[in-house]
Amino acid sequence: MNDMSRVEREVDTNEIKLECRDCQVYYGDTHAIKDVNVDIEDKTVTAFIGPSGCGKSTFLRCLNRMNDTIDVARVEGSFRLDGEDIYDKRVDPVQLRAKVGMVFQKPNPFPKSIYDNVAYGPRIHGLAKNKAELDEIVEKSLRRGAIWNEVKDRLDAPGTGLSGGQQQRLCIARAVATEPEVLLMDEPCSALDPIATAQVEELIDELRSQYSVVIVTHSMQQAARVSQKTAFFHLGNLVEFGETGQIFTNPVDPRTESYITGRIG
């Protein structure tokens, strides 16, 4: 737990990027998220931790309206991205998702070439005027995804042919290619081996300089290593939210303490 001292040193307050107030999510009759209030800061890694089934993914999916694709899901409350309500009727979820990118638990590259995987987002959003610009975006994104050196000679190879860790970094590159402001990651390392996990964690730390990153993880060590803020969910409630160092060393709520010490979860 050496990392924790480092995290403590880096604590500083950034401006608020995403402000969530009184959020409720229902799946049919199930009340999956109850009265959650969270402020996601800019240029910060925020970790969501909690036992499985407590609603971490559900809440994360509210932030880019991915829950819209689930018929039975109903979202209430206010979610403000830079002060604008993302659930406003005039907001097109498609545009929102370009601004709030997402990386999923299981690496899910398209069964297309590495190049096309990254170029797809910029193409559909019209971010490049010509092939040269698109090439540039692809290279920049792959570099940010810390995978450029491994794939630069085989951009035409299928993305599905890469190893698990490479696939996940490709997915991160794909997500940053649309120039998002917030990056949501749902257990991005749970399908990866320790070495690939370390690579992705390093990458997350680098991404913090430009993006606001929200990461769901069930590894407390990971939360401690990569995040500055941590939110602990339990049974749909946000139990505790604060500086990562404080949550792990000096939790206020007894439930947080018992989860961290391994008594629940």
Binding site: M66, L96, R97, V103, F104, P109, F110, P111, Y120, T178
Partner: peptide
């Protein structure tokens, strides 16, 4: 077709039809 492919496309801001 695995749902993860749909999620991937929606996640980078493709419309449902795309």
């Amino acid at each position: 077709v695995p749902p993860s492919i749909r999620d991937a496309a929606l996640g980078v801001g493709a419309s449902k039809m795309q």
